[in-house]
Design a protein around this nucleic acid. Structure first.
Lengths: 333, 333
DNA sequence: CGTGTCGATGCAAGCGCTTACTTTCCGACG
DNA sequence: CGTCGGAAAGTAAGCGCTTGCATCGACACG
């Protein structure tokens, strides 16, 4: 049905080997021959078979993109960046989205990626030892975005510094009782970005001579609903807070809601700052420390791509974060 | 390096043909043989090569997922649904995310999917004739989510009815001057969901004896920023509006912001209703007509899967929508 | 007891490429 | 003018499966 390399070879008057080499731009083909092959391929509408190429070469030219709940802003954006970077390099993106973390997630079966990807990009997740073992047994380059997985390269931000930036902003506004809506109580993995942000908050408080009291720290899952709940708990416990640093923008949005429901105006009576750079933050007037999610995804993809080409991967690639002041923060009343 | 079907065959004392058949659960294998093969495969840790299988069978067991800006709620959620449905059927999901609509999008090159997918799911987009032609030339089943592409099966909602539902809600609250923040002025494709929502608004207004004046219709791209801008234009033009129906939740959020910035309280002085069921709608108190994005994605995937198995696809699969009243709508002042 | 039937299995020919290894063809060099 | 060294191209052996067709028994039937 569809044209094969053989027909192109015939049309161009060369062997299939030469067609293969010419079309892939290998050096050992005379320019005139290459041009002729190209012309023949175009004329016939030739499209190489990835399966055949993969089988013959052992390389699939595709990479696995693993992420939980891709509907969450950070993951969606990072994936988009990764996908574009892959596309640019002429690689395919194989999507593997874990079931929502809400439902007890069945373990990631790295096996489904076996033999079908040349590399893997994992976005923010906690991997069990068994899962890591599986991933490793795939024997392909892998990089983790956001979460730090020992033994794997990491792309992300300096979460502690980002948290410190947020706290510094609040301190600069005169706040002294600064609450924190942190990562889920169930994910006490110190390598998790949320836990690093939490310790960043603690340290920054101490560095400013303030007290990061335990009851100022209110854990939430990283959703708006979770942030809402955590903020309510925090406000009940500590009515004296005048500022809240939420570990993500989505939780910060939940915090904003909780304040409004209590008739507290964000930015005047209580300041709120998030961390992410969520695209809806602007609309909600949410002050935040933004991180480049898209670029992190793209960079992760480029790294594994380079790794498949034999280049070594840097153990860590950090991106800068930036304070984006909006109306949800203001001077202490 | 990794074990092939041949080694399994040897270990099980059968031919590779039998191993192939046994592992795929084909009927013509004796149960005892099948069990022996399974055992041997497990013992050896055998994982079949998708490339080889694809090359030999002509079927890739993967489907292309095409969407613009996957970071937008509807697409991300629909993709997630599709991915899970595919995974369940043991198919791979090949992600193809178009560059953001903001940047002049380079045309979709269906060619990159040639020979590598058994089917395609396209989420809400406008395809040029050339692009449709390319897609068709792939010669695989394809279904469109959300947008109605002539000649292709469609999964979505009854956009006009959904819009009518929104308008009816507002009318029921006593509103008579109901504005509409509609789809982008540049996408005047009548098959686009936004355009159908727009005509749904017009018709519902007429049916209620109200006037869908042209200056009540304010076009926006489907983002929060676009909604913000469009709402401002609308409010300037028609200070008498007491209710606004936005074509998507993200635009509705922009509308909410515009109101707040003008000191107008949503739900009291001016009511706002969106359409989507965005997960942040709850947090923002946004009344909406919700649609099941996840299920639409999953259903689309199941449809093309069935189509690859030879089953005919229904031309249209519509999902129900539901009014979700929250605080952004209230009786006319 | 010969034969037809049918379920279970094996044989082997590909599927459409890549690539190690050869061959061919020239120009350069002694 | 014979040789040698490369660049350019060809040869052909796979890569690891799937599947049409052939084979082989076992069993039922006349």
């Amino acid at each position: 049905m569809s044209v094969s390399i053989e027909e192109v070879a015939k049309a161009a008057g060369v062997s299939t080997a030469t067609v293969s080499r010419a079309l892939r731009g290998l050096p050992s083909v005379a320019p005139t021959t290459a041009a002729a092959v190209q012309a023949a391929a175009n004329a016939l509408g030739y499209v190489p078979s990835p399966s055949a190429a993969a089988l013959a070469s052992g390389r699939t030219r595709s990479v696995g993109l693993v992420a939980p709940a891709i509907s969450r802003w950070f993951f969606a954006t990072a994936l988009e960046g990764a996908e574009h970077a892959l596309r640019e390099a002429d690689f395919d993106a194989l999507l593997y989205s874990l079931p929502d973390a809400a439902t007890p997630r069945k373990t990631f079966e790295a096996e489904v990626l076996a033999r079908r990807v040349d590399a893997v990009v994992v976005a923010s997740m906690f991997f069990s030892d068994a899962e890591v073992e599986q991933l490793r047994s795939l024997d392909v380059p892998a990089v983790f975005i956001s979460v730090r997985q020992p033994g794997f390269p990491h792309v992300g931000i300096d979460d502690e510094a980002a948290a410190a930036l947020a706290v510094a902003h609040l301190v600069g506004l005169g706040h002294t009782v600064i609450g924190h809506v942190s990562g889920s109580a169930t994910d006490r993995n110190p390598a998790a970005p949320t836990m690093r942000r939490r310790s960043g908050w603690r340290q920054a408080m101490l560095d400013s001579g303030l007290a990061p009291d335990d009851d100022l720290d209110s854990p939430a899952d990283m959703t708006a609903v979770g942030g809402h709940r955590a903020a309510n708990a925090l406000l009940d416990r500590r009515p004296d807070v005048t500022a809240i640093f939420a570990a993500s923008d989505e939780t910060a949005m939940g915090v904003l809601l909780a304040l409004r429901q209590r008739g507290i105006e964000p930015g005047r009576e209580v300041s709120v700052i998030g961390l992410d750079g969520h695209n809806l933050g602007d609309i909600m007037g949410l002050t935040t420390v933004s991180q480049p999610a898209y670029r992190q995804g793209a960079e992760a993809a480029r790294l594994v791509l380079a790794a498949t080409a034999g280049q070594p991967m840097p153990g860590q690639t950090l991106f800068e974060t930036e304070l984006v002041p909006r109306t949800s923060t203001g001077p202490r009343p």
